[in-house]
């Protein structure tokens, strides 16, 4: 067990956990930020995607001890104040989710893509979203959602 100071969604948090604990479980079990989901634990499904300094990362394989001081962690809960990030708006407008379980990860990947590239081509969107599995197969809507969000950026 060790103490870690984390900068999550704009606030400082102190947690005492074992150093190999992946960020995913620190967020979920210790900070009670359960929007970030567990899907595979081996960086294969994207359900656990968060932003670290704006970059989409798989939190399930990121030991908390590797997060350097000052790194800014953003989870779905912190993507926007009122759930109105362009990606969230687009997701609502198009009613993207089915079960919804994968969608936080989808939105985090999509928002990181758009922060980097405001007007991605269809091919670029597909490549960027390829790492996020949706078992309900809402892929058509996710694609449309990213396109719509891109227009709102």
């Amino acid at each position: 067990m060790a103490q870690f100071k984390l900068h999550v969604n704009g606030t400082e948090k102190i947690v005492e956990v074992s150093e190999d604990m992946p960020l995913l479980w620190v967020l979920r079990d210790h900070l009670k930020l359960v929007g970030t989901k567990y899907g595979c634990g081996i960086a294969q499904c994207g359900a656990c995607t968060v932003h670290i300094d704006g970059v989409a990362m798989r939190s399930c394989v990121l030991p908390v001890s590797q997060i350097e001081n000052g790194m800014k962690i953003t989870t779905i809960e912190g993507l926007s104040q009122n759930g109105d990030h362009p990606v969230q708006q687009a997701w609502k407008e198009l009613d993207v989710p089915q079960c919804g379980y994968c969608q936080a990860g989808q939105m985090m990947t999509a928002s990181a893509l758009l922060a980097d590239n405001k007007r991605p081509s269809e091919e670029e969107i597909k490549q960027a979203m390829h790492g996020n599995i949706c078992r309900c197969a809402t892929y058509n809507r996710i694609l449309d959602g990213v396109k719509l969000a891109s227009k709102k950026m």
Binding site: G35, I76, L79, Q88, K92, P97, Q103, A104
Partner: peptide, 9 residues
């Protein structure tokens, strides 16, 4: 539940 899903509640 859409508004909750998009906010990760």
């Amino acid at each position: 539940d859409l508004h909750k899903i998009v906010k990760g509640e």
